[in-house]
């Protein structure tokens, strides 16, 4: 194909953004455009905007659903297993911006080299979904108070996850022990989990610290086993998280070397 021909072809594809957002392409064209979107940032941005417009049309059609539908759906939900799809295995059947197969416009600048530290939120969501699931699962044999408290906590975690800048990072050592964080720098919130470290002997505890430049470590609380800890009020300058083993009840300042440390740079902190 000549250069002109290729340009014309490209221009032709660009013009499909609106029909694409309206689901008005034929299956073959839809696939072709999906493919085109993978290396066209301009189209991705345009499709995203146009799709939001199309959704306004959807809202205006809202109508009360038949009550029998609710019963059927809720009954089906009780016996339907959920998908656990790792980000990489997704097949984009819907607009890529919707399924997450495309980087959102304006974020494509994330350096590739940082990939090992930077888990896309899809993974974060899946990880945290497991966290939330475990919280929900243990509710069965708890008192109502505990149950409410745990539900409130699950919702707080969901709140962190739902932030538009939520990102995840994990660090695993050679023995398979890991520390994971899902954080939103704009909200100054993070969910931290420790896995595989067990419970320290002699009634001692795992204490989580926030490390900042030119400042004393700040205690973020005690970590109980694998239970996620929700940390708030994290300043933009926060540089890393550290865990130390402390006497029962915790300490005002760390009294031992950290057993594990995790930088917060990859989750948007450290200005």
């Amino acid at each position: 194909m000549s250069i002109l021909g290729r340009l014309l072809h490209r221009e032709d594809l660009h013009s499909l953004a609106a029909p694409y957002a309206l689901d008005a392409l034929e299956p073959g064209e839809r696939r072709r455009f999906d493919k085109h979107l993978q290396d066209c940032d301009r189209c991705t941005a345009e499709v995203r905007d146009l799709s939001e417009d199309a959704v306004r049309l959807a809202w205006s059609a809202a109508a009360p659903a038949p009550s029998a539908l609710r019963d059927r759906v809720l009954a089906a939900v009780r016996s339907t297993p959920q998908e656990r799809v790792p980000a990489r295995e997704r097949t984009p059947q819907l607009p890529p911006h919707v399924w997450g197969a495309q980087p959102p416009p304006g974020r494509a600048r994330t350096p590739r080299a940082r990939r090992p530290l930077f888990a896309p939120l899809a993974t974060a969501t899946a990880t945290a979904a497991l966290v939330v699931a475990s919280l929900v699962a243990v509710q069965a044999n708890r008192t109502q108070d505990r149950l409410d408290a745990e539900h409130a906590r699950a919702r707080e975690i969901a709140h962190v996850l739902a932030a538009s800048d939520a990102r995840a990072s994990t660090s695993e050592d050679a023995r398979g022990r890991s520390i994971g964080v899902i954080a939103s720098a704009s909200n100054g919130e993070a969910v931290v989990t420790l896995s595989g470290y067990g419970t320290p002997s002699g009634g001692r505890v795992h204490q989580l610290w926030l490390m900042r430049p030119h400042a004393q470590p700040r205690s973020l609380g005690l970590l109980a086993g694998d239970t996620p800890l929700i940390a708030k009020g994290l300043g933009k300058s926060s540089s890393s998280l550290a865990v130390t083993i402390e006497p029962d009840g915790g300490s005002a300042q760390p009294t031992s070397q950290p057993i594990v440390q995790l930088t917060l740079k990859s989750v948007g902190f450290g200005e």
Binding site: D23, S51, A54, V55, L69, P104, A122
Partner: peptide, 29 residues
């Protein structure tokens, strides 16, 4: 569609747009 929301909720990625947009795009498709 509503059952698919239950099954595929893990696919939702907040950075790529709102949940409502994701849900209604799915319903429309």
């Amino acid at each position: 569609v509503l059952l698919e929301l239950w099954r595929s909720a893990a696919r939702f990625d907040p950075r790529r747009g709102s949940a409502l947009s994701w849900i209604l795009t799915l319903a429309h498709r």
